[in-house]
Write a protein that binds this DNA or RNA. Structure first.
Lengths: 339, 339
DNA sequence: TTGAAAGCGCTAACAC
DNA sequence: GTGTTAGCGCTTTCAA
């Protein structure tokens, strides 16, 4: 009582108070079933009284684990993609907590896909990484693998389908397929596509869902597709051209950003989304939710992605390590006024 | 060459290779100017050769510092506020890195403002916190202060103006004042306000900027204000009522969400934002940027907030600790088609 | 079931 | 300027 805690109480303080050795306190915390019930109770009381919490640094040093998962924030990606990543980050933090992990955020030169990883890895600051920027292929994956780093990718290994690291991804083609079928069921048979440039794997994937669904229904894709930059302006121009040349009654877009461009074109022409022309976006961003009359949009199940990522992480970090290779999740469609 | 590193190289490995003591290597890393140039060069070569990076856990244990800053993610706040927080988080990560800190994300029961802080604090997992949810008053601040925790608040101590902890905030009233003046300069003299319920300090602050500016210009605020929930629907209803009863030619809103509601009402009535009725939002969200014809909006300088927060953090964590009490930043106005 | 000894990798304090 | 000693708080042997 006399001794005011100089800093936080340590294992030794608890041991003294409970009249046991330090080791016994350690066991009480980490392997409680090793203790006799009455000893355990006594130690737990002492822990309670002193407000003892194990020092992380000491524990980390000893166990060579930090219970931290590194996540790199990409300074600025595509517009809606960024918002989606933030949503994923929220989910990841939540899910990680339940698994006893915290998320360490870091950043690095956007140019260098590997910046920031190295230091954290070598200084053993994190136990594992969650890699999210595989949209540009995944040099990080190969790089991390080479260094025997533990990681899970959100995003499949586009450029190397034979890669053996664990990943979780959302099936973009399935998403646009759902969107396209939704439109076909609504009676549309001239459904246009506005997507990204051909060098985007994700973009080509999403496009494939649209085209294969049209073909499966015996509908033509000829002249119905456009590949542009991911900006509102591009979506607007592309939709104007398509409306003039192909006369579609509906648009499926690779992003909400492009879909907003379509809505602009419709507004200019006095056409009403949902009534005259249907529009579907991708990512279910805030924009989709608040714009008039609501933008139907493909929604990635990012909460589930986080759950699967953490599950994979736990497998990798467990003893013995368990690797489950790839998990593909299916998106849903948030139907709103625009379709 | 023969000895493949069993795990990472340590200080001792470098010392041996460079033919110096461990302490000298430590100095080479942390106080290079203590060494003779040639010794330093030799040690640095060895570090380079071995790819040595100091082990964080060991360093943390010894120095009682983690170089980690804790940031709690609020599961779900008001709609646009969440996006703003994400933007702040990005800036904070970036700025922290430059100061040698990483950001540790955690979460906690939304109900309990103090959840999650305690464990990180006592386990010395973080050196400091950045507290962002002061919009509900700041029980955390008092709580953290009591526990002698180091922290900086983003958000002033609304419920306790005498609080002495460091904080950084954006002057919401100044923001709406800029917005209102902008409208007055554009020739508007009937400017309505749509804001939040009276129990929101932030909301009242933003409202004050509007009302004081009108008064300063001899314009009336009577019947021109509405206090509602922060939803698109509420903004829409409130603006409809105001249009009918007060005939404003412009709206200033406490959020982009409310402003979107106004845009919906205008669309319903065939009125054109910017041409017939001006609208200004708050937070410069993505929505403001992509909606037709662009929503003029007050933009918080979150990058600067992050810089000031980190500056304050560095002060607090320095030796000796330096406390600079409060920093107030002024927002800017992103002018777009709606005004 | 509990305790004693050793050491994770680093740096603060001091001696040389 | 450089080396030696000690110890941060914890957990992993292993012995009692």
């Amino acid at each position: 009582m006399a001794k005011l805690p100089t800093g936080a109480p340590t294992l030794a303080d608890v041991a003294e108070r409970a009249g046991v050795s330090r080791q016994t306190v350690s066991n009480a915390v980490n392997n409680p079933d090793l203790l006799r019930p009455d000893t355990l109770a006594r130690v737990q009381d002492a822990i309670e009284d002193l407000g003892y919490v194990p020092n992380r640094a000491a524990r980390n040093l000893r166990t060579r684990a930090s219970h931290l998962v590194g996540l790199r924030m990409n300074p600025a990606q595509e517009f809606t993609a960024n918002a989606a990543m933030d949503r994923f980050t929220h989910s990841l933090v939540e899910t990680s907590r339940e698994a006893g992990y915290h998320v360490l955020l870091f950043s690095g030169e956007p140019q260098d896909p590997v910046a920031g990883y190295d230091d954290l890895l070598r200084s053993t600051a994190v136990d594992a990484f969650v890699v999210t920027d595989t949209y540009l292929g995944n040099p990080q994956a190969a790089w991390l693998r080479e260094r025997r780093a533990t990681f899970v990718a959100f995003g499949r290994p586009w450029d190397d389908p034979g890669a053996t690291h664990p990943w979780v991804d959302v099936d973009g083609a399935a998403g646009t397929e759902i969107a396209t079928r939704h439109l076909i069921e609504r009676g549309h048979d001239r459904i246009a596509w506005i997507g990204w440039r051909k060098d985007s794997w994700i973009g080509e994937d999403r496009r494939a869902g649209w085209s294969r669904t049209l073909k499966a229904h015996g509908l033509s894709t000829t002249g119905m597709a456009s590949r542009v930059e991911d900006t509102v302006h591009s979506g607007r121009e592309a939709s104007a051209v398509l409306l003039d040349e192909a006369r579609p009654s509906a648009f499926v877009c690779a992003s909400d950003t492009l879909a907003m461009g379509v809505l602009h074109t419709l507004a200019e022409r006095g056409l009403h989304p949902g009534r005259d022309i249907a529009v579907v976006g991708f990512d279910d961003s805030q924009v989709a939710q608040v714009v008039q009359p609501g933008l139907t949009s493909v929604r990635q199940p990012l909460e589930l992605v986080a759950v699967e990522v953490v599950k994979a992480l736990e497998g990798l970090l467990g003893a013995p390590p368990v690797t489950n290779e790839g998990v593909m999740l299916t998106p849903t469609l948030a139907v709103r006024g625009s379709s």
